[in-house]
Every structure is written in C-alpha cells, then in structure tokens.
C-alpha cells in the first residue's frame, strides 16, 4: 500500500505547530504516532495535503509529578512509556495496565496519549481510566491555552471540541481522594483487538463504605460516558457484593451501545453490568493496582 503525495512539516515547538495548523486550515492534518492517520490515509479515509508531525517536540514527551498539580503526562508520550513508567507504577498502576491493553507492542511504541484521546475512537483504552481519575487536559492553540475536564473533550465518534489550530499538549491526573482505580477491557483477542466493552472505576473507600465513585464506560456509547446514576447510588453505602452487583445493573442502563461485528448491543449492555461490578471490586480491594 502506498500513500498519496502530501507535504510534510516537522515543527520543533507547540507554537509553530499551532501556527501551521491555523495557516493551512482544513488542508492540514496533525500527526503524532501516525497509527491512526497513516492507516486512514492508506484506506483513503483521509487525504490531507499537509501533514504536521509533532514527533520532534521533546517537551510533549515527559511524564512527571508536579507537586500541587498532579501527574502530568505530555501528549506525545507513547503507550509503552506509560506501561513502563516507574512514576505510574508507584501512583497509578491502573493507567499503566490500561495502556498495556492497547493494540500490540509495536503499536504501543508508536501511538501516543494525545492521539488516543484526539482521535476520539469510542473504544479507546486510555480515556475511561483517565476520566475515572478526574483527568484534565491542556489544549493549546494560536490564541493560547485552555484547560478542561477530559470527559468534556469528546463530542462523538472521531469528534472533539478541538478547533483546527488546537492540539492537546498535556493530560493532568490531579492528586486523588480516590483510594483505588481500575480499567477492565474485553476484546475478542488478548492482543491487537479493539475493546468490545471497557469499564473504568475509581472509588474512595472509607471505613468499609464507598464515599465517592466514578464509573466510566468505553465502547458502549458514541463517547466514553460516566455512569452517573450508578455513581450516585454507591455514595455513602456500605460495601457488599449485592451493592456492587446492583451498581452494575444501574450502569448497564446508562449506556447506548451499537451492534457491530464485535458484539451486539444487548451483549455489550450485559457486559457493562458484569464489568462494572468487577472493576469496582478490584478498585476496592487492590487500590490503584
């Protein structure tokens, strides 16, 4: 397979990237790891005249802890850097484990955090766990920066609130009250498969009761969605198997899955019920592991 002709830019800074995107408008496409853009170009779903690669911007490739802010993950960080990050192993192994479930090893060495969010694929593996942990994103454009909750970034399949000149520059996981978090994915194979269902849960446990919970469902709605009724139901209740099972039932009513080659809507709904229960149990028992 070959690609059509296009022009290539490789800016060294975020400012220059935004300027190029603004200057060329809809003719230009932003590329990070390329695992989404190149495939779409091969399949003729995209034919940009200009590709703007952020590969050379080292500033976007850092994972660090900033006191008072939280864990800051640059948008150019590749999935395998999350998988092997000592900082994440210490603080949020759940993020490393979610990253580990994305595609296969070769793709994890190319695909970036910013790409996984920005391509807005409903079955993406990182957004559920990041949203469960209350992550915010920094978005930079020619006008400057804005920060928003990750859960508000998605509008629909392939659609985000980003304007043509904007790029995601960092994801911030704030210091947590949540005592545990987890992402469970079901794909048709162990490797290289998109999620049929992915459920992330974060819980704040205190004295054998749930103080607060966040449940995020992936691959079962046009965007990742929070199961807010289930979250509300769990608040200030004593932990029991029956409670978690009931939360699963409520969560399964909060998604709008489609039927496709990977699974039927009914199946997905029922898997949400089971996975919500399991993700909650794991987050309660194992912390952020």
């Amino acid at each position: 397979m070959y690609l059509p002709n296009f022009e290539y830019f490789q800016p060294d800074s975020i400012e220059e990237t935004c300027q190029l995107l603004s200057q060329f408008g809809s003719k230009a496409k932003l590329m990070a790891g390329g695992t989404d853009v190149i495939i779409k170009m091969k399949k003729e779903l995209l034919a940009p005249e200009i590709l703007v690669s952020i590969e050379k911007i080292d500033q976007l490739k850092k994972i660090e802890y900033v006191p008072g802010k939280g864990v800051v993950i640059g948008s150019g960080v590749i999935h395998n850097d999350l998988v092997y990050s000592e900082l994440l192993h210490e603080k949020y192994l759940s993020i490393s484990e979610a990253a580990r479930q994305m595609a296969n090893n070769q793709v994890r060495n190319l695909g970036t955090v910013g790409g996984n969010i920005g391509s807005a694929v409903p079955s993406a593996d990182l957004p559920p766990i990041l949203i469960a942990l209350g992550a915010t994103v920094k978005i930079t454009g020619v006008q400057g920066d804005r920060t928003m909750d990750l859960e508000n970034v998605f509008i629909g399949p392939g659609k985000t609130v980003l304007t043509q000149d904007e790029i995601i520059t960092e994801v911030v996981i704030p210091d947590q009250k949540m005592t545990g978090s987890n992402y469970i994915k079901f794909g048709l194979r162990a490797s290289g498969a998109l999620a049929v269902v992915g459920v992330a849960a974060a819980v704040q446990v205190d004295n054998n009761a749930i103080k607060d919970a966040r449940i995020v469902l992936g691959a079962v709605s046009p965007t990742p969605v929070r199961a807010k009724k289930a979250e509300e139901f769990l608040r200030d209740k004593k932990i029991s198997d029956e409670l978690l099972a009931e939360a699963g039932v409520i969560a399964s009513g909060e998604c709008k899955p489609i039927t496709d080659v990977r699974g039927s809507a009914e199946y997905r709904k029922d898997m949400v019920r089971v996975f919500t229960r399991r993700a909650l149990r794991k987050a309660i028992d194992e912390g952020h592991a």
């Binding site: 397979m1 390329g34 091969k42 395998n80 595609a103 296969n104 090893n105 070769q106 793709v107």
Partner: peptide, 20 residues
Amino acid sequence: QADCGACTVLLDGKPVNSCM
C-alpha cells in the same frame, strides 16, 4: 495496517511496524 507484525523493525531499539 499494523496488525500482523511482519514488517517489525527496531527504531531506536524499540519494535515498531515499519508499514506505519
């Protein structure tokens, strides 16, 4: 399309799909 791995090479020591 980055599924099969036949084109795997090491880029700065990391395995990647050279078709991508």
